[in-house]
Computed example of a mutant assay.
Amino acid sequence: MSHALVPNLLLFGRVLRGAGLEVHPGRMLDALTAVEYVGIRSRQDLRATLCALLVHRREDVRLFDDAFDLFWRSHDAGEGGLPLFALGERPRVVAKRVSAADVGLEIHDVTSSDDETPRLTAGAYSDSEVLRSKDFAELTDDEVRRAEALLADMGWRLGTRRTRRWRRGTRGSVDIRHIARVSLKYGGEPIELPRRQRVEKPRPIVALCDVSGSMERYSRMLLQFLCGMVRGTARAESFLFATRLTRVTWHMSQGRAQRGMSALVRTVQDWGGGTRIGESLRAFNVHWARRVMRSEPIVLIVSDGWDRGDPELVAREMARLRRRCDRLIWLNPLLGSASYEPLTRGMLAALDHVDEFLPAHNLASLEQLAVHLFAGRVFRAGIHRAV
């Protein structure tokens, strides 16, 4: 086997790993042994040999073929005409991981000595990654449709809460009552030590979203976010507000936001109007809190904080709402801007009663919120600002 072929085969294995394939070191040893017998005279034989040993999933065959064609491409005759790139070059391999998402792999410092192995630098670039970091207000119509599809596929798994009920378990505290019953068959001797555990259930969530005129640029994407959350969570309630409060849980659970906002616009009479956060929160606390705030839910308020009402009413109703929930999270699309400061009267009045103050301006921030809710973290000491 050529002295240059072994480093190239090992480098090709690294390229495949960087492109997403699972290439095990043991398989690379088998590939080196197989290539010794097959040789490199036939490009198709070499391709089939490496594919049989290094590809384990059918969906990775196309990715392997693209990487093989670009890595083992032919060069000019000055390099000997071999179907291998010469050492010292800086080739670039671009292979498609999924549709509409390219993965770029750059190979640097391929010159190797006996005591130095080639180094591979892998970098990824993707339209989906760009879309995830782009502000909702800057999306084009085509990007909005793609972002909606990504939001629809986002999995919502909330953290659990301990209920007051008990169940039998292998761990936990000793069940005294059960011990007394079981010991009767042993003449009163506690031979067995049954244990019990608290029953855990998914924590419910309540979302209140601002659809006033100042939130118009973000309304469509945030409604899609609410729709996916309600449909993906067993116990979720959603409300929209501007100058009044409207419950839209049924619309969201039926996927109405995915087919268009026309039905919601007709349902929410104050869509695109002014903002009265205090009055809307008071309506929720008076008419809906007793129904939907059982079991200490997580409350999400999605708003930019612009308010035309009384800030003292906002502070009073926020304090009332905070006492009924486990966590109160405020999502502000403007928080994604590095220069943003919460200086509006409504926002300043609400911040004293908020557990976490988080952005909601792009897909990445909503994905972080999903992970955050599942982790069940809480910052009681102050406001947690994540930009």
Rank of each mutant, 00 (worst) to 15 (best):
F12T: 06
G18K: 07
A19R: 08
G20E: 12
G26P: 00
L29K: 12
D30N: 06
A31Q: 01
G39W: 05
R41P: 00
S42C: 13
R57T: 10
E59Q: 14
D65W: 10
F68H: 01
D69F: 11
F71I: 09
R73D: 08
H75A: 10
E79N: 06
G81R: 12
L84Y: 11
L84I: 14
A86V: 11
L87W: 05
R90M: 09
K96V: 10
V98F: 12
S99P: 06
V103E: 06
V103S: 08
E106D: 15
I107E: 04
S112E: 11
A124Y: 09
Y125D: 10
D127R: 12
D127C: 02
S128F: 12
S128Y: 12
R132G: 13
R132K: 13
F136A: 03
A137G: 04
L139Q: 05
R145A: 15
W156A: 06
G159T: 15
G159M: 12
R162V: 05
R168F: 04
R171D: 06
V174G: 02
I176T: 10
I176C: 02
R177Y: 03
K185E: 07
I191A: 04
R195D: 04
L208T: 01
V211M: 02
R220F: 04
M221Q: 08
Q224G: 14
F225C: 13
V230N: 00
A234P: 00
F239A: 06
F241G: 01
F241Q: 02
R244L: 10
H251R: 04
M252A: 10
S253V: 04
R259T: 14
G260M: 08
L264C: 00
L264D: 03
T267Y: 06
V268W: 01
W271E: 00
T275A: 07
G278P: 01
L281C: 04
R282K: 13
V292Y: 07
R294Y: 04
L300P: 01
V302L: 14
V302I: 15
D304F: 02
G309E: 10
V314W: 05
E317L: 12
C325H: 03
R327K: 14
I329E: 04
L335H: 02
G336R: 05
P342R: 03
D352G: 15
D352P: 04
F357H: 10
A364C: 03
A364Y: 07
R377P: 00
A381C: 06
A386H: 12
